[in-house]
C-alpha cells in the first residue's frame, strides 16, 4: 500500500494551503483522520472519493465552515482554526463556491457580486460596480446583471456565485461539488469558467465527481475514503495506475457507469 504523503513540515512557506494531521470527530464518528497535505501556489487540486469520504467536510474546514478536533490548517500563511484569528478577515481572502450556489435571492445578480467588496472591504461604489460588471462579463453573464437569482438557471446561478467569490480577489478558490446540483446540460458552462480560471493561474481546490475535468485541468489529485487521505498523485498517474486498492475500486466503480 504505497501512499504518497507530503512529509514536509507543517507550515511550508511555499504552500498556500497546509494541512497537518487534521482530525475531526462528529461525536463518536471519526470523520477526518490524520489528513496532511500541501497546496502550492497556482496548483489546481481535485479532491475526489466515494460518498461519505469526508471530502466536503475537509474542504469546509479550510475556511472554517467546519471546526477541527486536532491538527493545524494554514491558508495564506494564517492558522485558520486558531483561537485568536479574525475569522471574517480570514474568510474574505478565501473564495468559496457552494454546491447549492447560495446566491442571495433578495439581491440582484450585480448586487450579489458587489456585496462582498462593498460590505466587507468597504470598497467604493463606482469601482466595485465596474469590477463586478467585468467579472460578470467574464463568466458570460454581463447581460443578466439586473436580473434576480430566481430568474436564472442553475448553471447561470453557479457562474454568478463564482463571480461573487472572485470579486473579493482571493488568492485561493475552494469549490465544494460545484456541478453536482446541476442538470447535465449546464455542467459544461460552469466547468468552462473553472478551466479558464485555472488557466489564469488561480490556486484552486475542487471537490468534484467530474473526472474529465480532473484529467484535463488538475495538477494533483487527492483521493479520500472514510476520512483518510489515501492517495496524492498527478492525474495521469492516478487515472491510469492508481496505487491504493480503494482508489482502484473507486475508479472501476465510476467507469462501470
Amino acid at each position: 500500500m504505497t501512499i504518497k504523503k507530503n512529509s514536509v513540515a507543517a507550515v511550508n512557506p511555499e504552500s498556500i494551503i497546509s494541512l497537518h494531521e487534521v482530525n475531526k470527530w462528529y461525536g463518536e464518528h471519526h470523520v477526518l483522520t490524520d489528513v496532511s497535505a500541501q497546496v502550492k501556489k497556482g496548483e489546481v487540486v481535485v479532491l475526489c472519493g466515494p460518498s461519505g469520504s469526508g471530502k466536503s467536510t475537509l474542504i469546509r474546514t479550510m475556511n472554517r465552515l467546519e471546526e477541527i478536533g486536532s491538527g493545524t490548517i494554514h491558508v495564506n500563511g494564517q492558522d485558520v482554526q486558531g483561537k485568536q484569528v479574525d475569522v471574517n478577515s480570514m474568510r474574505s481572502h478565501i473564495g468559496f463556491v457552494f454546491q447549492q450556489f447560495n446566491l442571495f435571492p433578495h439581491l440582484s445578480v450585480l448586487e450579489n457580486v458587489t456585496c462582498g467588496p462593498l460590505w466587507v472591504n468597504k470598497a467604493k461604489q463606482a469601482e466595485t460596480r465596474q469590477l463586478a460588471m467585468a467579472l460578470l462579463e467574464k463568466v458570460g453573464l454581463g447581460h443578466k446583471a439586473q436580473a434576480y437569482p430566481n430568474q436564472l438557471s442553475g448553471g447561470q446561478q453557479q457562474r454568478v456565485a463564482i463571480a461573487r467569490a472572485l470579486a473579493m480577489n482571493p488568492p485561493v478558490m475552494l469549490f465544494d461539488e460545484p456541478t453536482s446540483a446541476l442538470d447535465p446540460e449546464m455542467v459544461g458552462e460552469v466547468l468552462s469558467v473553472m478551466k479558464a480560471l485555472a488557466a489564469e493561474g488561480m490556486t484552486m481546490v475542487c471537490v468534484t465527481h467530474e473526472m474529465n475535468f480532473a484529467r484535463e485541468v488538475s495538477d494533483v489529485v487527492w483521493f479520500m475514503d472514510q476520512g483518510s487521505l489515501l492517495e496524492v498523485a498527478a492525474p495521469d498517474v492516478f487515472f491510469t495506475s492508481p496505487q491504493h486498492p480503494r482508489a482502484q475500486k473507486f475508479l472501476s466503480d465510476i467507469r462501470r457507469h
Binding site: 465552515l65 475569522v87 471574517n88 447549492q100 447560495n102 435571492p105
Partner: peptide, 25 residues
C-alpha cells in the same frame, strides 16, 4: 443554512450577515 454560510464565506461578520442577508429575507 446556506445563506448564512455564503455570507460568512465572503467574510461578513455576524451583524452584517444578520442585517443585510438574513433579516431582510
Amino acid at each position: 443554512k446556506g445563506q448564512a454560510e455564503a455570507a460568512a464565506a465572503l467574510g461578513m461578520g455576524y451583524w452584517t450577515r444578520t442585517r443585510k442577508i438574513i433579516l431582510p429575507q
